[in-house]
Computed example of a mutant assay.
Amino acid sequence: MVLFYHAEQCLMNYPRIWLNELMRLAGEIKSTACYMFEYRNNAGINTLFDAFYWTIVTLATVGFGDITPQTAGGRWVTIFLILASLGVLSFFTSILIAAFSEKMLSIRESRTYAALEHFDNFIIICGFGRVGQEIARHLHEEQNRFVVIDKSPEKVALAKLRGYLAIENDASNNAVLLNAGICRGASVILCITGDDVVNVYITLTSRHLNKGLRIISRANRHDNVNKLYQAGANQVIRPFEIAGMLAAEFVGQPVAFEAISGILQSQSDIVMESVLVSEKSPLEDQNIGQLDLGQRKLTLLGVISANPIHLKHKNKYQVNQQHFYFNPAEQFILRHGDILVLLGRKFGIDHFRDQVERRRLFARKPA
């Protein structure tokens, strides 16, 4: 797709390049060479102007015909007519190529829309910058269905080169989102462009078109978070603030940095998973310090809870009707329904989850 795009651009500019470069370089060379070889051979080329005229007629493929101008004025008129006709021809050629390229873009979008009609429960990614590319890569690896919408031809070509469905258009446009299936099969839309204003517009449009759609929006500035929630976002992510909090909270903790680094570098054995504190779980009524996560080579990223008893703790961020308590203190007491968000190697988290479940089942057995 990238090669096709560049070839298309070259075709659109070809008439101008042909006139400006080919006529200039080839004309100068052929005029000079023709004069040097023919001016003494009685071929009708006695001056540099004669050689220049002959070159223009030859390059334009006009031919010499039965009637040829003999005076300098007549030849100048002939040269002007030739160049003017070439200019008109080039102009109409560029119009045809531009129309053809627009039609090809429309055909490609129609094929994408037709493919989306057969999808259910897919994801719409609005914006294919650094964040969008990482999200698309993970979704592709997990074999999730999604479509990318971006206004940049280069980014859309990159998405198609990687094998993703992509649409080159404005995601804040109602018609674009409707054709992309926002009311037909989409379950989640990600508004993750680099511009907060654009993200607000896409969020407003998406919520207006589909009241039950899950919308995740990106905020680059803290003062735009509330605007995105008011526009209808279910969750708002702040990538730069999250990166800063991780660096500040986990400095000096090598296990945490190992886990985070492993996730960023796509190491297969480093994961981030959740563990539910279920009813009668051995984790219930225990504080964070009693879990011995450090000895298990696990790191607690945070706790998701709807229990109002936790509201006194700091570093809390609202997530729908719950709160996410980032890096809670050791005195944080777990309650029924809380969710632990753990970082570590997959087998370590699986082993911890199995141990918790075994202890819960053993405690439920009658004496």
Rank of each mutant, 00 (worst) to 15 (best):
A60C: 11
H323E: 03
S274D: 02
A259R: 05
D285S: 05
S217R: 07
R162G: 00
V62G: 05
W18V: 13
L178P: 07
N226D: 11
E168I: 13
P254Q: 03
Y229F: 06
D269F: 10
R137C: 12
D66F: 11
D223R: 11
P308H: 09
L48A: 11
Y201P: 01
A329W: 15
V275Y: 10
S278H: 07
G74R: 02
N226V: 13
D50S: 03
E109C: 00
T32R: 09
F324N: 01
C34M: 08
E330V: 02
L165Q: 06
N42L: 08
F332Q: 00
S305P: 01
H313Q: 15
S261P: 03
V236K: 05
N220K: 05
G44P: 01
I189Y: 13
S187R: 03
R360H: 06
C191G: 06
S206V: 01
E142S: 10
I288L: 09
L298T: 05
N174F: 08
D196F: 06
V57D: 03
M36P: 12
E357Y: 10
Q267I: 03
P153A: 03
N315S: 11
A98H: 02
I349T: 03
Y229T: 00
Q321W: 04
V236Q: 04
L264M: 11
G244E: 13
A243Q: 13
N199R: 01
D285H: 10
V148P: 03
A166Q: 03
S106L: 00
F4K: 05
D285N: 08
N173K: 14
G127R: 14
I263C: 12
L293P: 01
G129C: 14
G232R: 06
E168Y: 12
L300D: 08
N41H: 05
N307S: 12
M1D: 00
N315G: 05
K314P: 00
G132I: 03
E357L: 14
D269S: 14
A243Y: 11
A84Q: 09
I202P: 12
S101H: 03
T203W: 15
N179A: 00
F332H: 08
F240E: 13
G65F: 15
Y35C: 03
E330H: 11
